[in-house]
Design a protein around this nucleic acid. Structure first.
Lengths: 333, 333
DNA sequence: CTGTTAGCGCATTCAC
DNA sequence: GTGAATGCGCTAACAG
């Protein structure tokens, strides 16, 4: 592997001059520049990113920490981030936190130690306090899917309260009053926000909140199925079930159909996230859009703007929208 | 940020000694070790990975290049790789190649320049020759989903020919003889291998291969729908359609149902990959298992074994299996 | 068992 | 416009 020194020798110039033409950040006469370029070419010289990083204290790479890599959710986000960054010559180092506080912190430290120029975090287990503290450090961070007042200028988030509100008010507006809610794990902030929106929609319709209509799920299809079964066991009248994500809604619908209940004839079911599902599925899923890819892209733009001085516009808050489809319908008497 | 020097001063030892206790790779008296650990603790010392990498010529990170990050396919693979590597204290740097030769090469060079200890590649646009050459370099590489004879000891792959064979022989064994095939993009090697298996199954059943029963698709749902429509337009008798992946099979089924054709009553449809699909979908998808997560894990193990001297067993070839479900049935007269 | 010394490959003052 | 010198933080011989 040729080094900058080899190039300088072949070009008959100093090492500093080679560095200048490589980085194109100082005046170099056209003549010597050409000599250097020729030598670089001949030696197939490629700068050593590690050495450059050590000397300059920049790495041209940004760390991304997500809670998991699989599923329809993070893949599209990662794709957007990688794409936006790579097209600006920056690169991505990935770590997965698995919704575990220790693992998330470990991931952050790893990315920090690797000398990332910035961190994009989609984390849920660490505390606000930790993140606020982290934000004071030398490495800029930007949060996806999380709003913290003290560092709101680094938060790219979805208005989940509004999303929860939209979902429930949709079924309420169809005439449903016996509306159950299948939430995600309660330790997650966005889950609690969606619940708050759900409650607001109920209150607005003058419907009392009733614990018997609530089940905590796990965001997985089987969990949605189990939740649906639990609700049916409870023997309370039920005409609509709002789920905190599409996967649980799928499980809930499956249980209904298996028990001979028609969806949406007997029970309306709402999802959340707008996951891609096969087009021939029946019923199609009424859901709430979750523009996660937009947020990923925006997080990348935030980094480009604040760390690499690229001139791009930034939006912080994203609004969910209702996508009514076939799994919800007007309440029949 | 405290450096190793700060620690050595506070502990009253030399810089080399600190390095020894950090790396735990040489005898240090228990007494001085404790002094050092205490100083590290007090200063909240964390080694600078970049400097360490430059000095030692190792980075404890491995590069992973995939053609895309989104979709059900690569997420689960990435997850397995990250998990296996992280639990061994190694880390993952990701790049996406987007099935473009230039981008794939660019990704490889980036990962190489970052000083990755090894590369895991799931690439399709670069030539065998390029990869063989790359394998001769100083950085070990391992290939997923690609078999190259000259470097077979670095290939983790699925027997796609066999998968293609299984898919088609399944419907043939159900009595179908008018069997269409919707392939993926022909420039992809695994696509051609699946086709070869398809042809073998036909030949074995004494069915002549007929171009009118072949459509090149794009691995996307809409492409599968378009392919199905094209097949129906052709006006040839049709009793089964074998698709090169589940997503296209979904599109194909959608078109059948929209046209009032029953699946599998009128037409049997086969998928490939065994993607997760909602449990309430009807018909359920007959498919071929593609143990991509296993292959991801194995690639990580390969790296652990050959680069980091961890003692693990390696399997190179993975066999697809038939998963018959509801979208295929015995041919009715 | 411990300290000294020399780089790893490059960016970045400073002189000239 | 160009070169010489210094150091980024750490590892790895080599002595002792």
């Amino acid at each position: 592997m040729a080094t900058i020194y080899d190039v300088s020798v072949m070009a008959g110039v100093s090492l500093a001059t080679v560095s200048r033409v490589v980085n194109n950040n100082a005046k170099v006469s056209e003549k010597t520049r050409l000599k250097v370029l020729e030598a670089m070419e001949k030696l197939d010289y490629r700068p050593n990113a590690t050495a450059r990083s050590l000397a300059s204290n920049r790495s041209d790479s940004v760390g991304v920490l997500v809670s998991q890599l699989e599923g329809p959710y993070y893949g599209t986000m990662m794709q957007q981030i990688e794409e936006a960054l790579r097209s600006a010559g920056k690169h991505v180092i990935i770590a997965a936190g698995r919704s575990d506080e220790a693992l998330e912190k470990d991931g952050v430290e790893f990315l920090l130690d690797r000398g990332c120029d910035a961190l994009v975090l989609d984390v849920e287990a660490v505390t606000d306090e930790y993140l606020v503290q982290l934000a004071k450090g030398r490495t800029p961070i930007v949060l996806i899917n999380r709003y913290i007042d003290a560092i709101q200028d680094r938060c790219i988030y979805l208005d989940n309260e509004q999303g929860g509100y939209l979902a429930t008010s949709h079924v309420v507006s169809l005439g449903h009053r016996d509306v159950a809610y299948v939430s995600g794990p309660l330790y997650k902030l966005d889950v609690r926000q969606r619940i708050a929106g759900h409650k607001r929609a109920l209150a607005e319709a003058g419907i009392d909140y009733d614990e018997r209509y609530f089940v905590e799920g796990d965001f997985a299809e089987d969990g949605g199925a189990a939740a649906m079964e639990a609700l049916l066991e409870r023997g309370v009248p039920l005409s609509a079930v709002v789920c905190a994500n599409d996967r649980m809604a799928s499980g809930a619908i499956a249980v209904c159909l298996e028990r001979g209940l028609s969806v949406p004839g007997d029970i309306s079911v709402m999802g959340y996230d707008n996951n891609p599902l096969p087009r021939y599925i029946s019923p199609t899923m009424s859901t709430i859009s979750n523009p996660i890819h937009e947020m990923g892209k925006m997080a990348a733009h935030w980094v480009l703007k604040h760390v690499y001085q690229v001139d791009v516009a930034i939006a912080f808050e994203f609004m969910p929208t209702l996508i009514p489809r076939g799994s919800t319908a007007v309440k029949t008497p």
